[in-house]
Design a protein around this nucleic acid. Structure first.
Length: 553
RNA sequence: GUCCCUGUAGCUCAACGGAUAGAGCACAGGUUUCCUAAACCUGAGAUAUAGGUCCGAUUCCUAUCAGGGACACCA
């Protein structure tokens, strides 16, 4: 795209890799570079070699040494026409190095509802899946639910003590959660319960029929519940492979590690691995002989790399997991399962309660995602009813779903993923300003204009710039490719979210200022084409974030 | 104690080592005989502190302070 062309040009002239950016202030051109200041080269000399290039309308040196580029109108028109004719796929350039990336995200725990604290991994993960695919990588989307481990012993013990089959059948998730919470609280007073729980897990691992049956039942109910939420969220996870899947591989894995002398048996019977560069060894088998989460993760890494011939595995997981994942990665390397550079942690900050506290199941401060989405949809519905009462009920409901769910997702995706975000109903369900509905609304307005014009994407579209705002839109729209690439390469979907807002904002000013349908001849045709191209980009961008773009709202 | 993330306007957040630090919400005011006012325009308002590196620091480094999190038989 344009930025790449400028980079290439500068490389030819200076022999150096240039940083080319789009300045916020339009007076500094469409693109600019600081290469002269960084390399100590003479900016004027560089400009001399570029200024006659037909790609630019103007190239100037600005103090303290920036080189600013104004793209030629003809060049913009040409590129924009290409977008109109061939669609957003013109931005899908082949990556320099094509990767096969397994992305693990969402990964909820069985027997608990999907809560708002799962939102981040699910939403960010899905957005990254979409974006990385768009920029040309092969992506395998995967969830690794917590369907195994001592917690299941606790749950089974609780079920055997207090469980009621009928109640659980009617209302599975809340009942399971209730059992879990009750058990944790009781165990605080009576530590013997912990022992009982461990015992039940041990039995489960050894294949006890009753425990297996209970486990399987809980598992199925949970997955069913997750799928409902995923469907509503528009999240498509190709593979759900839980921890339990790796159970048969664990003992051999441990045995092999011992045989190769990578792992050592401690005096208490636990089996540990020393990690180079880490003071903390990693346990891969507990002293009671039971396996542990880490072991299952190691088996999972091995399996994924082999099954999909993956070059990389990304974990979209909270910042809290940093230490743990670092340990797992180190262990995997030590065992020769994977290279360190193949394993990446895409970390994100926490979702905190309005009091700045952590969401935790045990204290019962958990807000089910279902409730959040239901509330969002309801709020959106109220607004559609007010603003567009004449639309058919079914359409209004569908708009409310797109807008409500979109708002929740955008709230998350518009944040730099590293910061902690405070859960706030009003902010999260914001339906105006810097939000999904604002962008969706812009898309709907553009759609409406095209509808009224009976616009059809013709074979030889024509386009002439006659107003600065038109040029601005073209420059912004044509930046789409580089933005998506940046967002994908750095794993920061908020870069795309910010961009879409900027584009929508520019478009709002455009159609407030310039008539489209009432414009004459060439101008009308140009503007319709402009609207069409911009609409395609808004839609594509929203979809990459996993947000729908309704035609009307 | 060690390690990870964060500290920007009243609130919630942007900013790729660059140019006059951008938005949204809230607040004050304005725009509708004109393609959807979920919009547009105007106004006021901010880089935790102290050093350092650099032509240039919100950004990098060091220290301090503040918030969140993690530190082997939970996941």
């Amino acid at each position: 795209m344009i930025r790449d062309k400028i980079k290439k040009l500068l490389k030819e002239i200076t022999g150096k890799e240039a940083k080319v950016e789009h300045p916020e202030d339009t007076r500094h051109g469409d693109y600019s570079t600081n290469i002269a200041m960084r390399t100590g080269l003479d900016a004027k000399e560089i400009v001399k070699k570029i200024e006659n290039n037909p790609m630019f309308e103007k190239v100037e040196v600005a103090p303290p040494g920036f080189i600013n580029f104004w793209i030629d109108k003809k060049e913009l028109e040409r590129l924009f026409l290409e977008l109109i004719e061939r669609g957003p796929k013109i931005f899908q350039k082949k990556p320099e190095k094509k990767e096969t990336i397994v992305i693990e995200y969402s990964s909820p725990n069985i027997a608990k509802p999907l809560g708002v604290h799962h939102l981040r991994s699910t939403i960010i993960g899905q957005a990254l899946v979409n974006i990385l695919r768009f920029i040309g990588h092969k992506v395998v989307s995967l969830s690794f639910p917590g369907d195994w481990g001592t917690q299941f012993g606790f749950l089974i013990a609780a079920f055997k003590r207090w469980g009621n089959r009928e109640k659980l059948r009617r209302n599975p998730i809340p009942e399971m959660l209730d059992l879990y919470v009750r058990f944790s609280q009781a165990a605080k007073k009576d530590p013997k319960l912990i022992e009982e729980g461990r015992e039940e897990f041990k039995k489960l691992e050894e294949g006890d029929r009753e425990n297996r049956k209970i486990w399987k039942w809980f598992l199925e109910e949970s997955l069913e519940d997750f799928n409902q939420v995923y469907k509503l969220l528009g999240v498509k996870i190709e593979h759900t492979i839980g921890e339990s899947f790796y159970e048969p591989e664990l003992k051999p894995l441990v045995k092999d590690a011992l045989k190769r002398d990578v792992a050592k048996r401690g005096r208490d019977g636990s089996i540990v691995i020393q990690i180079p560069g880490s003071p903390t060894p990693e346990i891969i088998q507990k002293s009671d002989g039971a396996t542990i989460y880490t072991t299952r993760e190691l088996a999972a890494i091995r399996h994924r790399l082999k099954k999909w011939r993956a070059t990389k595995i990304l974990y979209v997981a909270a910042n809290q997991q940093t230490f743990h994942l670092k340990q797992v990665f180190g262990t995997a390397q030590r065992l020769g399962i994977a290279k360190l550079e193949q394993l990446g942690h895409v970390k994100f900050g926490m979702m905190l309660t309005s009091g700045g506290k952590k969401f935790a199941t045990r204290e019962g401060r958990l807000i089910p995602l279902k409730e959040v989405l239901a509330e969002a949809i309801q709020r959106a519905k109220k607004i559609v009813d007010e603003l567009n009462p004449s639309l058919p009920e079914e359409l209004k409901e569908s708009i409310a779903r797109d807008v409500g769910v979109g708002a929740v997702k955008f709230f998350d995706l518009s944040h730099n993923r590293l910061v902690d975000i405070i859960f706030d109903w009003d902010k999260m369900l914001n339906l105006k300003g810097f939000s999904a509905p604002y962008i969706q609304y812009t898309h709907a307005r553009l759609s409406s204009i095209l509808r009224k014009a009976k616009f059809r994407n013709k074979r030889n579209p024509r386009l002439t710039i006659s107003h600065p705002l038109e040029k601005e839109i073209m420059v912004v729209v044509l930046r789409f490719g580089e933005i998506v690439r940046d967002a994908g390469e750095t794993y920061f979907p908020n870069k795309l979210a910010n961009y879409l807002y900027e584009l929508a904002n520019t478009l709002n000013v455009f159609y407030e200022t310039l008539p489209v349908l009432k414009a004459k001849n060439k101008e009308r045709e140009s503007r319709l084409n402009l609207v069409f191209g911009a609409k395609e980009i808004l839609k594509t961008g929203l979809n990459l974030l996993g947000i729908s773009a309704p035609e009307k709202m």
